[in-house]
Design a protein around this nucleic acid. Structure first.
Length: 332
DNA sequence: TCTATTTGACCCAA
DNA sequence: TTGGGTCAAATAGA
């Protein structure tokens, strides 16, 4: 474990730096996109700063000796990364642990600790007519468990967890935050991975499409051309054409090079209704499996390769239909 | 009756 | 101390 921690720190550091670089690239791209919102740029700058500060903090205080816990001294969003440092190590016991541990018996290793789950973000832009009902439907059953106004954000953030949380101990959650700068853009932050089999079960009856994002470092690029869409209309009826951008921002355990530096820059998913229907099932099923694979690999895990692997393999072994390119995102 | 959503309160991390 | 994340009771809808 300690090794993992030490190694983990290193990885975290690397990830932070790589993330910073990625974000800088994104920013660069955004700067070249006239229609890119100011807010987006700012948020990128923020992320870059945070990222580098974290990296510096790690370096400064970094005596890996500190076994475990990757607390970031200066305390910013210490959050993120880390797949599953056992709660016990993670410290901060307290009533919380005693209480919750009890309740969250299922997800022991990811208890309710906020920072222990890997996170990654997708930005989804609704460009035209895909029905947007409730939370963006990514193929999984989510149950809303909360909503909160976020400081500085125009729109409240919705909190969702996997419907099968109890039944199948699935600890996946997601947060949906609509961009205040560009209401057509939804930032979806996924946490944890689906360990449930809902995908496979729901598949039998014609369900929806695909999935959440494989953690990966990519970009959040907004299609300039789509920018003209009107929020209201879009929200009511989104014809077809939804763009999804993922940022593996917080997936500390995922190595940046995952997608390959050159290509990772632009993970720009677009989906049409057609895309939804087709391949979605397989995708979905695969996704869940992937989640499992990831879970295991990440917890074991230190090797980026191991992380990248599942996708490539899953793609072929688990489900031929698995593809990021055609994943639908909203089902109706 | 069951399931999902809403919402106020609580707790934790920063 | 504050903001974010989660819980759980109340409520609504199927």
């Amino acid at each position: 474990m300690e090794n993992c921690n030490t190694h983990g720190e290193k990885m975290s550091l690397i990830n932070e730096l790589a993330q910073g670089r990625e974000l800088a690239r994104q920013l660069q791209i955004h700067l070249n996109v006239p229609s890119s919102s100011h807010g987006t740029r700012e948020s990128l700058v923020q992320k870059i700063i945070v990222s580098y500060e974290k990296a510096l903090s790690m370096l400064n205080s970094s005596s890996p000796a500190s076994g475990g816990e990757q607390q970031l001294p200066t305390g910013h969003a210490a959050i993120r990364m880390i797949e599953s440092p056992p709660p016990s190590l993670n410290g901060s016991p307290r009533s919380e642990d005693s209480d919750r541990e009890f309740k969250d018996q299922d997800n022991k290793d990811s208890s309710r600790k906020r920072k222990t789950l890997p996170r990654w973000t997708q930005q989804i832009r609704i460009t035209s007519g895909i029905g947007l009902e409730g939370p963006l439907d990514d193929g999984f059953s989510w149950r809303k468990y909360g909503q909160k106004d976020i400081l500085g954000a125009k729109y409240p953030r919705g909190y969702y967890r996997c419907t099968h949380r109890n039944a199948q101990c699935c600890s996946a959650t997601k947060q949906v935050q609509r961009s205040d700068e560009d209401p057509t853009v939804f930032e979806i932050t996924y946490r944890g991975r689906h360990t449930c089999t809902q995908a496979s079960t729901s598949i039998t009856s014609a369900p929806p499409p695909p999935p959440p994002p494989p953690p990966q470092n990519s970009m959040d690029i907004v299609d300039p051309q789509q920018n003209e869409q009107q929020p209201q209309d879009l929200l009511l009826a989104i014809p077809q054409g939804l763009t999804v951008v993922t940022e593996g921002l917080d997936a500390g355990d995922f190595s940046p090079p995952f997608m390959g530096p050159a290509t990772s820059g632009t993970q720009y998913f677009s989906a049409s209704e057609q895309g939804f229907g087709g391949g979605s099932q397989g995708f979905q099923g695969a996704e869940c499996e992937i989640a499992e694979i990831l879970s295991s690999s990440t917890s074991a895990a230190n090797s980026p390769a191991a992380l990248g692997f599942p996708f490539g393999q899953a793609d072929q072994n688990l489900c031929p239909n698995f593809s990021f390119d055609g994943p639908g995102f909203f089902s109706s």
